[in-house]
């Protein structure tokens, strides 16, 4: 009973908090994720069901004209966040919490209606394209016969803008080079004229030039008024173009910092983990912290970063720290001030 009451107050607190942030920012968030939890139901031995929690109490907002980078190590569940927003999770997934788009709650039906029109995903790799379908058909997507001419024109324009030669239209995915593939994947989002673009790991394995080029596409989108969520493990790339950085750790967001906070020695960063990340970069101290992320089925009562934290207190092992708004950012840490 007491536990439930606690959850309730916490929810209120978070809701209250995000309204404060919302008011402060003036502009209304295009996408608002509140207290999102995601778990998978699995059959352990025999008929015993277990729940594997992969995302817990995650909150974030995306604003028009801004790039929000969600940065975290591989395997921390970042892609699942994108899948949750788009409603393409597998059937054994259980989603709690609230997702709002443009002030309206995003239910599964709403997601199905919105995706591809209002919300676009830019996938990680070429495997997300049908291996046996021509590129132009894939970029255009499923269009009605009457719109085909118009879409074709759109597609040609976009290809021209992205410096894709006309013969690319007739190619199959395996014939594309890495850079071309990246541009084709970006085109699929641009052609949909979506307001919210979620790019899932769009940069791995790209050379410096292609990387900057790809990043410039996202900047372009934001400049044209889209809200862009950039999911990546490459913090340097994220810092180049993003406005805000959300630090993702073991299925939740520990801090949302403004890009300016990453200047100097990172003394403006709020969470010990964010600071550790910053210090781990080669151009900074190149220091890694000990330990590893908690495994998904580990039950942790308290701060999720407790084990590895250098500033832990007794309080930290009891109950998840509340989200606090500090210096224009949000942090989930008892010690931050």
């Amino acid at each position: 009973m007491g536990y439930k009451a606690e959850i309730k107050t916490k929810k209120e607190l978070i809701t209250g908090l995000s309204t404060i942030i919302g008011e402060k920012e003036k502009a209304k968030a295009l996408l608002k994720v509140e207290d999102l939890s995601l778990s998978f139901i699995q059959y352990a031995s025999g008929l015993r069901q277990t729940e594997l929690k992969v995302i817990s109490n995650l909150s974030l907002q995306a604003y028009k004209g801004e790039i929000l980078a969600v940065v975290g190590s591989s395997g921390s569940g970042k892609s699942l966040l994108a899948h949750a927003i788009l409603g393409i999770l597998p059937s054994n997934a259980k989603l709690d919490g609230k997702i709002e788009y443009n002030g309206e709650e995003l239910t599964q039906e709403k997601k199905e209606e919105m995706r591809g029109k209002e919300i676009a995903l830019i996938p990680q790799a070429i495997t997300y394209l049908d291996p046996l379908m021509k590129i132009s058909d894939q970029v255009m997507g499923c269009v009605e016969k009457k719109d085909e001419g118009l879409m074709k024109k759109f597609q040609r324009e976009i290809f021209q803008r992205y410096n894709l030669k006309p013969e690319v239209e007739r190619m199959l995915p395996h014939e594309l080079s890495g850079g071309m593939a990246r541009r084709v994947l970006v085109s699929t989002a641009v052609i949909s004229s979506s307001k919210l673009v979620i790019a899932d790991e769009p940069t791995p394995g790209l050379d410096e030039k292609t990387l900057n080029e790809t990043l410039s596409y996202f900047k372009d989108m934001a400049d044209k008024g889209c809200a862009v969520i950039l999911i990546t493990h490459d913090i340097e790339a994220a810092l180049k173009i993003s406005h805000k950085i959300a630090v993702f750790y073991a299925g939740t967001i520990l801090e949302i910092a403004n890009v300016e906070d990453f200047k100097n020695n990172g003394e403006n960063l709020r969470h010990p983990y964010t600071r550790a990340l910053w210090n781990a970069l080669p151009q900074n101290k190149f220091q890694a912290i000990k330990g590893h992320q908690p495994i998904q089925d580990e039950v942790i009562d308290g701060c999720i970063f407790y084990e590895r934290c250098s500033k832990k207190k007794a309080l930290c092992s009891q109950g998840i720290p509340q989200l606090k708004k500090i210096n224009g950012g949000v942090v989930r840490c008892n010690n931050a001030s």
Partner: peptide
């Protein structure tokens, strides 16, 4: 269960159309 069908779903394709197309 392939990536490209997941992406097709993410782009709004569904049901029989999706199966016919991919």
């Amino acid at each position: 269960s392939s990536d490209y069908v997941l992406f097709a779903k993410a782009r709004g394709e569904k049901g029989l159309d999706l199966v016919l197309r991919h």
